[in-house]
């Protein structure tokens, strides 16, 4: 989930730095603010899609 600490050139400091872990929102913790299930489900679906794309990249 958090990725591996591979080295990538740091363009700001010109030093190698670990690449950040992949963007991984957790669909399970997306809530239901003001009881709007449609928005919750839509946001969860979008988060799952991001995770699926991250999985494919690996």
């Amino acid at each position: 989930m958090t990725g591996t600490a591979t080295q990538a050139p740091d363009t700001r400091t010109n030093r190698a730095r670990p690449t950040p872990p992949p963007f991984a929102p957790d669909p399970e913790i997306i809530g239901n603010y003001e009881g709007n299930k449609r928005i919750r489900d839509s946001d969860r679906r979008a988060a799952r899609e991001i995770l699926r794309r991250q999985e494919k990249k690996r």
Binding site: T2, F23, P25, I29, I30, A47
Partner: peptide
């Protein structure tokens, strides 16, 4: 912290 951050950025 990172998963919560990512989820908040997603929202």
């Amino acid at each position: 912290k990172q998963r919560l951050l990512d989820t908040r950025i997603h929202l």
